[in-house]
Design a protein around this nucleic acid. Structure first.
Lengths: 128, 128
DNA sequence: CTTACAGTTTACGTTAACGTCAACTTAAAG
DNA sequence: CTTTAAGTTGACGTTAACGTAAACTGTAAG
């Protein structure tokens, strides 16, 4: 099983070591220790990747933490599993809303682009 | 031309009046005044809608402010217009990245969903 | 007139997400 | 052994995005 130092992951995902320790204190990462030095495994790596991607989408750390937990139906009973499935569905809906927002923004940006290009064309015609 | 009070827009977009005044102080909104009372027009309404949508996508107010400016190639010369076009392109690329992130998240959520359903199925088989 | 309500400015408070710094330990290199 | 580098734990500082409270003004209703 692959292991990583704090610096390994910090460099890979372009965050500071301070950030990694902060995430641990917030319960997002759970490195083991060799002496007092942190040792990260693949599960932490996946979690970190998820947090970083979440940030690009405007997720708070608390939201990303929930997301991480959705990926571990560890020792969960049926009731818990059903709650997890419900959360997953909510997340999927939220992402659908985001996609819709992005779609609208892209259309608006293309409108803006057209207006710019038009104005450029007009200027060139009136400035020979 | 339609006009809105601060409360009109605050209720429509579910923000507080404090937020609206804050956005004004940050240069995102530019209401006129009747006496000292703020009067908003359609341009402000559009800008506000854009900011709200931006927030759902994780944009900072500074980023949304830039976006707003992209929609007004007002008294811009050719050099400025080209810079605007460049920014528009950057924004479109950023949105493409977001869509990719969302796509990955959705796939992962569906994996998680499958794992949950599997576990549920197993439990039912071993608990008759 | 006064009561009530909506709006205004000013200013200090708050939370999330780290940055920064100090003081320390451990590990490896020269 | 000393230096150097990378790690550690506090603890305090910072920024964005508002919340909250105080003190004031205008205006419509009873």
């Amino acid at each position: 099983m692959p292991q990583y130092s704090i610096r390994d992951l910090a460099e890979e995902f372009d965050v500071t070591t301070r950030t990694m320790r902060f995430y641990e204190s917030e319960g997002l990462l759970h490195p083991s220790r060799k002496g007092q030095t942190r040792i990260y495994n693949d599960k932490d790596r996946i979690a970190l990747k998820l947090v970083i991607r979440g940030k690009r989408l405007g997720f708070s750390l608390a939201e990303s933490k929930e997301l991480i937990q959705l990926y571990n139906p560890k020792g969960a009973n049926e009731t818990q599993l059903r709650r997890v499935l419900d959360k997953i569905q909510q997340q999927k809906n939220a992402l659908d809303q985001q996609i819709e927002d992005i779609r609208v923004m892209q259309l608006e940006l293309e409108e803006a682009e057209r207006r710019c290009l038009e104005t450029l064309g007009d200027n060139n015609n009136s400035n020979p």
